[in-house]
């Protein structure tokens, strides 16, 4: 009987050692490469015709462009345009990773806390650096909301600092936990299909079908949430409230 967590095991495919660093190509690394290839092909092959009246594929490519462009416009404003390529790459990377992970026997690298936490830290550090470059020392006024009496500062400032520091943690755990939980649930129910036989196996199978549909929603939603929160943090960094 397969363990429901076995699907998350990292397997080394090509061992590579660069000095002290273990840079082996693992199943996670392979699916990262596949994700980048899929995103690039999706966007470039869809746009080869450059039609004024787009076909289905070109429409999807343009739709994803305008989706993220609109998200930045609404959440960050005009100053956010510089960060559009990064936010777009982030969204497509997570979305395609989640969707490719829905293919049976594939690997979902967004279900690994190491990957999601690194991405969250890149966002967090990047946003903080942007804020400090833009506002200098004034950035630290972010931790004391305007209009709050100074008496409250000793209580409020630590809370604000803590909530700021917990951003990368909540950002990374939300994505990792959602992906891991969904895939584990499907696997647990899948384990019941054959043992319950031709009569009883239909019940878990139905659950799997429903869960699979639900997981496609989660795959999109988590990519969206990660990106929207990145935009909101970027907005905080640029406008300080």
């Amino acid at each position: 009987m397969a363990n429901p967590l076995e699907q998350f095991t990292i397997k080394t495919l090509v061992p590579i050692q660069l000095g002290e660093v273990n840079a082996s190509l693992t199943n996670a690394g392979l699916f990262m490469v596949l994700t980048v290839a899929a995103v690039t092909l999706f966007l470039t092959l869809g746009m080869t015709r450059r039609a004024a009246v787009p076909g289905r594929w070109q429409s999807m490519a343009e739709l994803s462009y305008e989706f993220i462009a609109g998200m930045i416009r609404d959440n960050v404003g005009n100053e956010g345009r510089r960060y559009f390529p990064f936010v777009f790459s982030l969204f497509m990377f997570i979305l395609f990773a989640n969707l490719i992970g829905m293919i049976p026997y594939s690997f979902t690298f967004t279900s690994h806390i190491a990957v999601t936490f690194t991405m969250a830290m890149v966002v967090f550090l990047g946003v903080t650096v942007i804020a400090i470059i833009r506002h200098g020392l004034h950035f630290f006024s972010f931790f004391l909301p305007t209009g709050v009496p100074m008496v409250m500062a000793p209580i409020l400032v630590p809370i604000e600092v803590l909530s700021y520091l917990s951003r990368p943690i909540s950002l990374s755990i939300r994505l990792f936990a959602n992906m891991m939980a969904g895939h584990t649930m499907i696997k647990v129910f899948a384990g019941f299909v054959i043992p319950l036989g031709i009569l009883g196996g239909w019940a878990p199978l139905t659950v799997i079908v429903a869960l699979t549909a639900f997981e496609f929603l989660v795959a999109f939603l988590q990519a969206y949430v990660f990106t929207v929160l990145t935009c909101l943090y970027l907005n905080d960094a640029i406008h300080l409230h």
Binding site: I10, T12, I16, V21, N22, A23, S24, L25, T26, A28, G29, M32, V33, F109, H112, A114, V115, T118, M119
Partner: peptide, 8 residues
């Protein structure tokens, strides 16, 4: 972690 992060 390291192979994952290198490839990431």
């Amino acid at each position: 972690f390291t192979p994952q992060l290198v490839w990431l």
